[in-house]
Design a protein around this nucleic acid. Structure first.
Lengths: 140, 140
DNA sequence: TAGCATAGGCAATTAATTTGCTTGTGCTAT
DNA sequence: ATAGCACAAGCAAATTAATTGCCTATGCTA
């Protein structure tokens, strides 16, 4: 699922190659599920300081490497951006799916449907999140 | 814009009529803009204890009086639910608009476009938030 | 209008995030 | 290869946000 070698990805964004940064990318790039900050902290807490994790996530978001999705509880979740993302514009305009049983967030390969704005409003981005039961939880 | 008399609304949901509860409804029902918890606190902080405010908002959400929208920063925003909402199912399926300049959240009178889920996923609700510049800020 | 259930207020706790500062390390130019 | 610098990591502490417990106050029913 990882679209790119972490080391190249870092270099491409003028970021130094550190153990911690690579680990974060590895963890997030595992599948197409966005992962929450608390979950990342649980997985990486022994290898990476919590403050460092916050900083890495912020850096990645700024650089357009990760995009952030807020879930129902206002918790930040992160997923790898498509290669088209840049520091100044995120193209994370696919639909997200938030499972209300296991709380995972999936990035669905569905385009966000176009909507027409009322007069006076200009939309730069549209985020769509569907809530329900995911594949795995439906099966159980 | 207020759809209903606050006192009747409270009674209809088996909630005691208190000054604090009425004030919160008044503040939120003013227009069709969702209002954030911090903003509410700023406006009501001198009349209502912050803990009471948290509790009132939670109660209203549970009862289906308010619905909650998370903005980009993970801050909770609240808006009056349509009369069709109940404690067990929110019908807040219109599109929200989050102005990235003034940070207001508008409830647009647009239906959330239907999207088809991948096999295995069942969606119970879909939330769509558009980000951009609102009416007022576009004008300025 | 008495009594009770529950709402509000205050204090304190817990959790989440940010900031400052010091140490450590990747990377570039010798 | 390595010296030096810019910046990343780690730790401590400060903020900020949200929750909990407990006591008092008050709306509502009998």
């Amino acid at each position: 699922m990882m679209r790119m070698d972490p080391i190249k990805l870092l270099k491409a964004h003028d970021l130094k190659h550190t153990r911690q940064r690579v680990r974060v990318l590895e963890e997030i790039a595992m599948d197409n599920v966005a992962i929450s900050q608390p979950e990342l902290e649980k997985r990486l807490g022994k290898e990476i300081d919590r403050v460092t994790l916050y900083r890495i996530l912020n850096t990645y978001e700024d650089k357009g490497i990760l995009h952030r999705v807020m879930d129902l509880n206002g918790t930040a979740n992160y997923a790898i951006c498509s290669p088209a993302c840049s520091a100044h514009h995120h193209h994370d305009e696919h639909v997200h799916f938030n499972c209300t049983r296991c709380f995972k967030i999936y990035c669905l390969e569905i385009e966000v449907p176009g909507i027409k704005m009322p007069k006076g409003f200009t939309a730069n981005a549209v985020s769509t999140i569907a809530y329900g039961i995911c594949e795995k939880c439906n099966f159980i």
